[in-house]
Nucleic acid binder design. Structure first.
Length: 822
RNA sequence: GCCCCAGUGGCGAAAUGGUAGACGCGGCAGACUCAAAAUCUGUUGUUCGUGAGGACGUGCUGGUUCGAGUCCGGCCUGGGGCACCA
């Protein structure tokens, strides 16, 4: 977790789910590494420093000290000897070590580029960190700025990351899909148009375009370039109108709505290029506002008939619209495109050597022809961009390089690592305190020994969280990763987290893992073999009707059947059910719940009321139900006689009908709870435990005899072990109460006896024409003929068969009987 | 616009193609109590019927099947992801 200072219900649910897995697997005899650490760098610490004058380091470590108590109180079975904090030089120093390795490998580079600038946090953001045009943390509208920044070459791994998704069969389909879309591979053609008009300086070789629809080249109506294209800049230098148009394009709003509403605009440059396939045909070159510079080559050819944007553009500037793909059944002489471009399947026409081909074949043929002509080749293009990791902030991992006027960028030598953050910094002004520090940045060049300057950018905190799992396997190693330890533990078998990291942390970690593998530091290509994305904890929201203020659940009460604010008595309306958040005040503090109901009830409730992958709505009634269950379970343990029951032979117990029934229920319980945990259906497993409690309570006979008492003792012993992953403290107390050996946390998971778990007798429903008309009791495994005879003889069934002729009787063994009659 | 997911009682939900609504919350009734709370017991999809029993029922609509909440086609609604990506 980020050490914000307090845990919230989302943490409780997240870690409770993970703890169930850890405790279950441990009981199953596995070695379990279940660690905890702090993602401790980042903006909130600096904000606290600016607002309250505290030091980010002190603030962070104080928060860690406060927060550490909570997982302990929750009873999470964590190995605290492996605890790490990413703001510890012992951690980030090792990060600097591997960062330099990647720099040597060419996976880190520095370039000037247009970047996303968050004006509130005063720093740069990666593409993945811009959500709907806003900073992922600050929510501020992101601006474009030209800056020199450090980048990690994630695009080198675009293909590997895409292919690797296919191996992650224990990941949710949804997350794999999101990553696939984010990487966005497309196959197409990269080729040059040759100028028919005199080529502008620097473009003598032609103008390079990228397309995924080379099959539609015969429908080309124009060539378009992005306002940011070098050719556009060159033209603007000599043409004030072009310059004005480009400036106009840059002014448009950055929000989605603005982009969507923006009309297609173009500027006719007067330049023309040759159509590669049609002799004498020329295409006009336009600067167009809808063409992106950072995808493909920043230049396209427009085929209005088969691309909606090109069509909009063509209609506006009265350019020809020539269909070249004919839908099946359409008449080639009359087929036209109106306001909607045709993007569906069909056969090529009006396209010379492509005529009659289907789209895929035509693409290959067009690419082949362009390649023969030496104008270009088939190409793969990705939507994924390199990962900008520079942050102009103090509280982050320093980038371990030195800038020397004479020698350029120099690595900080290994014996001078870690580059430690200076502590004497001030936050009285905006901007990066490292830049203002009087001495820290001034160092000698490691190469020439002359005056040089440290890099003052720090790393994106997502770098810190992209390898911590490997560090956990040997948290004190003198090198970043102890390979033997990592080989023993990695990959992570079960990762539990929120969906919000689908294209952030989960993609970065996959990239860094692959990069470190190529560096020889890790053996696995994928960090997380199993991923589970849990749902959020939600709560109703409450709003004072009079003034629209949000009020918290603790500030309201029911008076005369109506909700009012306690202090003012003003009526309150119930709003939507939303993720717990401070802004909506629909937060329930875990500590208060622990105090009121105990941690076991809190753990139980967040897992019992919804499937783990779905959101769970926090309700007082719900947690009280869990709390009642805890008490009722304890009552069952507590009502067992203090003295251990006399030893009773197994066959004697089974001879007692009541005792046998209880043992059968017990073994069925083991089977179903085990399957529920294995399948991550914890809510169903908990429902089975509730059910079993009702069975246990409804068994008065079980205590009346030595056999009954012995059966009950066995049942309670099983129950203690089965509830242990969910409510560990209750399990421990119950286990001790009935004289269990040692601690239940160390007890092996119970195995079920298949014979006992099986039913002896079944109630089979009998259907007549698909409607249930009766039921019969038959022994398990009864022969089809026997069941058929009993079913047909059943009075209820006979009543419904009156006047009908039985055509067919379907007997599904031990399941159902359906009589088809007419 | 493209892609994905989900629609089941008053609510959260359960159901390898085989008794829809387990379990919990809430409601109702009863026991205990002077009373209330807590606790315990029973009951609780809708509807017709005094009852036995019947009809209807998993967003809508077709289909496959002896049998569909579950599989297939079309649609509606809600949620999420991506988005001028050529």
């Amino acid at each position: 977790p980020y050490p914000s200072g307090a845990i919230h219900m989302g943490h409780v649910r997240n870690y409770a789910l993970g703890d169930v897995v850890a405790r279950y697997k441990r009981a199953r005899g596995f070695n379990v590494l279940h660690p905890m650490g702090w993602d401790a760098f980042g903006m909130p610490a600096e904000n606290a420093a600016m607002e309250r004058g505290v030091h980010p380091k002190g603030w962070t470590y104080d928060n860690i000290a406060t927060m550490r108590a909570e997982p302990k109180r929750l009873g999470l079975s964590i190995d605290w000897s492996r605890e790490i904090a990413t703001c510890d030089p012992a951690y980030y120093g090792q990060q600097q070590r591997w960062f330099l390795k990647l720099l040597e490998r060419g996976l880190v580079y520095r370039k000037e580029g247009v970047v996303n600038w968050d004006p509130v946090d005063n720093t740069v953001l990666a593409n993945e960190q811009v959500i709907d045009g806003r900073g992922w943390r600050s929510g501020a509208i992101v601006e474009k700025r030209k800056l020199t920044q450090w980048f990690l070459r994630i695009t080198d791994y675009a293909d590997a990351l895409l292919e690797g998704l296919g191996t992650l069969d224990r990941w949710p389909e949804k997350v794999r899909l999101m990553q696939e879309n984010w990487i966005g591979r497309s196959q197409g053609l990269r080729f040059r148009f040759l100028f028919s008009t005199p080529a502008p300086h620097g473009f003598e070789e032609g103008l390079e375009c990228y397309t995924t629809r080379p099959d539609t080249l015969f429908g080309a109506a124009f060539v378009g370039i992005s306002p940011g294209h070098p050719l556009a800049e060159r033209i603007a230098a000599a043409d004030p109108k072009a310059a004005a148009f480009i400036a106009e394009c840059a002014r448009g709003g950055a929000s989605e709505a603005d982009i969507e509403a923006a009309p297609k605009l173009g500027y006719d440059t007067g330049l023309e290029v040759d159509h590669p396939f049609i002799d004498g045909e020329r295409l006009r070159v336009w600067i167009a506002n809808f063409i992106l510079m950072d995808y493909g080559t920043g230049a396209i050819f427009g085929c209005p008939a088969h691309d909606q944007r090109d069509l909009d553009f063509a209609r506006k500037y009265a350019l020809p619209v020539r269909p070249v793909v004919l839908p099946s059944g359409a008449d080639p002489d009359t087929f036209q495109v109106g306001h909607e471009a045709y993007t569906g399947p069909g056969k090529l026409f009006r396209s010379q050597f492509l005529d009659g081909l289907d789209i895929e074949t035509a693409k290959a043929a067009a690419i082949g022809r362009i390649e023969e002509m030496g104008l270009g080749q088939g190409a793969t293009v990705y939507r994924l961009r390199d990962w900008g990791v520079s942050r102009q902030r103090y509280w982050g991992c320093p980038i371990p390089v030195v800038h020397c006027q004479r020698c350029g960028v120099q690595h900080v030598p290994d014996d001078q690592l870690p580059v430690v953050l200076p502590e004497d910094v001030s936050f009285d002004r905006p901007g990066n305190p490292l830049l203002r520090h009087p001495t820290w940045r001034h160092v000698k060049c490691p190469s020439c020994g002359g005056e040089a300057e440290r890099e003052t950018d720090t790393l994106d905190t997502f770098v810190d969280s992209s390898w911590y799992f490997a560090r956990f396997t040997a948290p004190d190693a003198a090198q970043p990763i102890d390979k033997a330890a990592a080989d023993a533990w990695m990959p992570v078998d079960q990762y539990v987290g929120g969906i919000e990291h689908a294209v952030l942390h989960l993609l970065y970690s996959r990239f860094i893992t692959r990069a470190l593998k190529d560096e020889g530091m890790l053996s696995v290509a994928e960090p997380f073999a199993g991923l589970f994305t849990q749902g959020m904890v939600t709560h109703e929201t409450y709003k004072v009707m009079a003034d629209g203020r949000w009020v918290s659940p603790g500030e309201i009460e029911a008076r005369d059947g109506k909700l009012v604010e306690s202090t003012s008595g003003l009526p309150v309306e119930v709003g939507g059910i939303e993720k717990m958040s401070k802004s909506k005040k629909n937060v329930v503090a875990p500590e208060e719940i622990f105090d009121a109901y105990g941690v076991d009830a809190a753990r139980l409730f967040v897992m019992s009321d919804s499937p783990p992958e779905r959101d769970v709505q926090w309700t007082t009634g719900g947690v009280e139900g869990a709390w009642r269950f805890v008490h009722r379970v304890w009552n069952e343990f507590d009502s067992q006689p203090q003295t251990a029951p006399a030893k009773v032979a197994a066959d004697v117990i089974l001879a007692d009908a009541g005792a046998k029934a209880l043992l059968q229920a017990t073994h069925r319980l083991i089977k179903s709870v085990t399957e529920s945990i294995e399948g991550f259906r914890f809510n169903s497993g908990i429902a089975r435990l509730y059910e079993f409690l009702n069975v246990l309570k409804a068994h008065p006979a079980a205590t009346a005899s030595p056999q009954g008492l012995a059966a009950r003792h066995q049942a309670l012993g099983v129950l203690a072990r089965l509830i242990a992953p969910f409510t560990p403290h209750l399990a421990e107390e119950g286990w001790e109460r009935i004289g269990g050996e040692g601690m239940v946390v160390l007890a092996p998971w119970p195995d079920y006896d298949a014979a006992l778990a099986a039913e002896d007798e079944l109630v089979l429903p009998i259907q007549v024409n698909g409607k249930r008309r009766g039921e019969i009791r038959v022994p398990v495994g009864s022969a089809e003929d026997e069941v058929k005879a009993i079913a047909l003889a059943d009075p209820d069934v006979q009543r419904h068969l009156e006047g009908l002729t039985v055509r067919k009787v379907i007997v599904v063994k031990d399941r159902i009987v359906n009589i088809v009659a007419a």
